[in-house]
Design a protein around this nucleic acid. Structure first.
Lengths: 224, 224
DNA sequence: TTCAACAAAAGTGTTGACACTTTTTCGCCG
DNA sequence: CGGCGAAAAAGTGTCAACACTTTTGTTGAA
């Protein structure tokens, strides 16, 4: 365990716990036990404690004093809230990127996108990440890449996004990139917002279809 | 010190440190010494350490492993980034509030605003807070109220906002509220974005005027 | 049988000591 | 006299033990 001591233990533990969440070993709503994780990673409780606190800071874990820490249980309502925020922030993100990206960077982004179109392995999210990084606004980039996308990955790890939207996403991304290439910031922002709003609508539909079905949405899992 | 033990020590220390920042006892860019703060508050280093980590999570403190923790030194560039983010998020905030607020809540907001107009004590920010709370989106509310407004207060504690903008702000706020009353979400969002973009422009101007002056912007204060 | 009070267990909060890293200081050599 | 390197100082990272809180399990009486 004392091999890749390049960073601090807290950071290592943070990533290990996060992997546990993404891989579903600790289910959403499950309990995060400091002592158990400390034993598992062969470290003391201190680093685990701080890592959990950091996860709490990123809203991946909820906790009250002296109460067990729990993995956030992302409801559809939560995702709708996140997507509303994304619509606003990513709209600004692509607006700024359109205004400030250099021609060469823009061309490279387009080329990389075309490559990804052929061998469809790269995740859809990557385009959004690239745009966020190109926005030149570190706070927007951090909010999207370090916070919201983590939550998205967590949610998708359980629910799995609708596979039908995959093709539409490519087309919508392509339109956004063309608007960026044309240096039309207004259009790029509108397209991005419409792109995300469409996903929000899908979540709203999912919510309604659930309300019509049985009201057994109160299923919470525990893991002691 | 062990009187109001209602919360956990970490939370108490967090607030105490934050007060120190707002009151300027630890200047922007100043060093945050764990041991010194622990002695000052008569607690161990552990809670101080976690509180600092929490401040770091909210971007009020920057820190690298084994390096001194420093209070974030908010440059004009940082504020521009924050205002760009605010423009996007508060635009969505007022859009959602316009769509979801009840008539009675909206009337009360208008009434409170009129009251505040007469006895001009309430801070300008309060309107933004009320709208964020009324948006119904807890994540947007938290981002604005728990993170960005903290940074604003920190920045204004040193720089002081331009007093000339105060009157304009009242007028702009009034327009926004009227659009909300008319249930025109598009207009409300546009007005809010323009309102914040105007402040962003002022920051851009400030930046340019500084570049024209001497380049003595490298003054950093320490406090060991 | 059921409910309440009490006791034991589990888990979190806090502490002080020790290990590691970075910075500063001081002496040495060029 | 100036720069380089080692030792000391300062400060952060980690750990194991102890204190406190919450939860669970049990016992006793109504």
């Amino acid at each position: 365990m004392a091999e890749k001591q390049q960073r601090t233990l807290v950071d290592q533990v943070f990533k290990k716990i996060f992997d546990l969440l993404v891989r579903g070993e600790i289910p959403l709503g499950g309990v995060v036990n400091e002592a158990a994780l400390a034993e598992r990673f062969q470290v003391s409780r201190g680093p685990v404690r701080e890592a959990v606190k950091q996860l709490q800071g990123r809203a991946l874990v909820v906790k009250e004093p002296y109460l067990k820490a729990r993995v956030v249980d992302l409801s559809v309502e939560d995702m709708i809230e996140i997507f509303q925020l994304r619509e606003a922030v990513e709209g600004m993100s692509v607006r700024l990127a359109t205004q400030t990206m250099s021609d060469s960077d823009l061309d490279r982004l387009l080329a990389d996108f075309s490559d990804a179109l052929e061998n469809k392995d790269g995740p859809v999210l990557d385009v959004h990440v690239r745009i966020a990084e190109a926005s030149g606004n570190s706070r927007i980039r951090s909010l999207l890449c370090d916070e919201l996308y983590y939550l998205l990955r967590l949610y998708r790890a359980r629910s799995g996004d609708a596979p039908g939207r995959r093709q539409n996403a490519f087309s919508e991304h392509w339109q956004i990139l063309r608007a960026m290439k044309a240096r039309d910031a207004d259009l790029a922002e509108s397209l991005m917002r419409a792109h995300i709003a469409r996903a929000t609508s899908a979540l709203h539909d999912l919510l309604e279809s659930r309300d019509e079905d049985g009201a057994d949405q109160s299923e919470k899992r525990n893991a002691g």
